[in-house]
Design a binder for these strands. Sequence first.
DNA 1: AATAAAAACGCAACATAGTTGCAAAATATT
DNA 2: AATATTTTGCAACTATGTTGCGTTTTTATT
Lengths: 130, 130
Amino acid sequence: MALTRNTKAQEEVLKLMQETPHTLTVDEICEKIPLQVNKTTVYRMLERFVAAGKVHFITSSDGKAHYALCTSCKHQHTLHNHIHFQCTACGTVDCLPDKVEIPVLPGYQMKETQFLIIGICTKCAAVGKE
Amino acid sequence: MALTRNTKAQEEVLKLMQETPHTLTVDEICEKIPLQVNKTTVYRMLERFVAAGKVHFITSSDGKAHYALCTSCKHQHTLHNHIHFQCTACGTVDCLPDKVEIPVLPGYQMKETQFLIIGICTKCAAVGKE
DNA sequence: AATAAAAACGCAACATAGTTGCAAAATATT
DNA sequence: AATATTTTGCAACTATGTTGCGTTTTTATT
């Protein structure tokens, strides 16, 4: 990847991600974006963003990829030590500020981490109590 | 699920899982099992095992489910605080003995956890150095 | 041992997430 | 404006996992 180019589609996707407080799937991006963008394009776009370190993704327990901007983790990373929370009630996946201590694994080469907790998020838990 | 019954297929799957030091996908189970068992059957079987707490699964970053017996975590659980390692070279996913400190998340209800580290496992890293 | 109820199974068809190849459009540079 | 390269859209495809339903197997009971 020698050069990158700015396109309307990319701008819109980044803008949507900035405005959204939780992670997004490719389908959600395609639905919510004002501009019509093909899903293949979104997949490839996100692939580039991930490679560039702008975006990270977390795979939910049902196997779907959820993307988010790399905000809490500035600088150089790939090793995302914050926690993601998947709510089985509303389906959203959030990046939480809480960090996990990544253990040292002698002999292993770490490239990426995915810490996921599945359960009921604060909003849905509150609704359940009413 | 009022009652459960023992079947050859279930025995064989459990036996295979006991003999295998790493996690297994449904396809791997279907391939490696001496008895011929339909994939749907294996899916439903594992679903039962997971519900019964005999087996847990971890979703790899590419979205596939990898199953393993619950050994390191005896007793009652669902909250698996050990780490899984996904090797991008050989493709295997292992349960590591290393534990993660699960943070307290006020307002959230935790049901399940999935801690995954992606990289190169000890075996593949050693081969790479030769 | 025969019977009956329920669990477990197999098959086929389906659903969905993600991928690939290729031609067309958009972008940056000269 | 011309060019080279990136980015996009489309269509077809792959793979994982699911669903419905009829059949077989297991288990408890008679």
